[in-house]
């Protein structure tokens, strides 16, 4: 049993977990709830073991580094962070309906990972730093929160547009949407998730700056990755200011949660493939 096989199993497990959570929502199968949670938790633990195993394997090969160094490893960690964050949210807010809008992101990330090479490669000198773990972990905890916030933004819009459309007639669609949490609850949790993500994104940008300074003597060089992380930071900073001072909520914050996540995806994924810069070692090759 090696880490790649365990990761492969995790990919299918997250797909199955996604179906379970979607089934809870679509078929109002509340009885599936505990099954979905336990199943997802087991898949998460398997992935955690796979993560540890891959770390060990890298030492056995003689390269010896944390599995957080290329596109494959970061996508896997992204999925792990999404599930960890989601399970925490489920536990805190005692609501499993968010799962249908969060766990599929973890599956997508794993699926994308399987399309990139999973070979353990040696680390170039620039990446050999203790800041690697701090930088990647802070960034991806933030990204995971933003992914879940995006899922909840979609959930909010689905419910609020659904209600508008079916106002007057009481169709099946409406009763399905009525199983979703109240709009103001979704709104509140979305906001709190963005707040959480924003703190970690800030920490991620800062740890990256300190690392860059210790490796190259420049804490900020406006390379595309840095610049896009700042753009993402501005999007969420804007959303938070609009809410705190202008009382924005509802659809506007839901849309901002989605736009913000698009910016996250571009910062993380798009920049590597469409633009060139210092983070080029993060690309698939």
């Amino acid at each position: 049993m090696n880490s790649s096989q365990l990761m492969g199993f995790t990919t299918f497990a997250y797909l199955a977990a996604s179906f379970l959570y979607i089934a809870i929502f679509v078929f109002r199968a509340k009885k599936l709830g505990i099954i979905a949670s336990v199943f997802t938790l087991i898949a998460f633990l398997v992935q955690t073991a796979a993560f540890g195993l891959r770390w060990m394997e890298s030492y056995q090969i003689g390269y010896g580094h944390a599995p957080l160094t290329n596109m494959y490893e970061s996508l896997v960690f992204f999925a792990w962070a999404i599930v960890l964050f989601y399970l925490g949210l489920e536990y805190k807010f005692k609501n499993r309906l968010i799962g249908a809008f969060a766990v599929p992101f973890a599956f997508l990330s794993m699926a994308l990972a399987t399309l990139t090479g999973d070979e353990i490669k040696p680390l170039i000198p620039a990446l050999q730093s203790n800041w690697l773990i701090a930088h990647v972990m802070t960034c991806f905890v933030g990204y995971a929160a933003f992914a879940v916030a995006c899922g909840m933004g979609i959930m909010y819009l689905l419910k609020s547009y659904g209600i508008e459309k079916s106002s007057g007639k009481k169709g099946r669609e409406e009763s399905l949407l009525s199983t979703l949490p109240d709009l103001n609850v979704i709104d509140d949790v979305t906001h709190k998730t963005i707040v959480f993500g924003f703190l970690w994104l800030s920490a991620g940008i800062i740890s990256g700056a300190i690392w860059a300074n210790s490796a190259w003597g420049t804490y900020w060089s406006w390379d595309p990755k840095e610049t896009w992380s700042l753009i993402t930071w501005f999007v969420y900073a804007g959303a938070l200011h609009a809410r705190f001072t202008k009382g924005w909520g509802g659809k506007r914050i839901a849309w901002l949660a989605i736009i913000g996540f698009v910016s996250v995806v571009f910062t993380y994924y798009g920049v590597n493939y469409l633009l060139s810069g210092l983070h080029s070692y993060g690309s698939a090759g």
Binding site: W222, T227, W228, I231, F234, V235, L275
Partner: peptide
Amino acid sequence: LAVTSIIGTV
């Protein structure tokens, strides 16, 4: 700032 920053990345 967010919009103009894009220019230099493209």
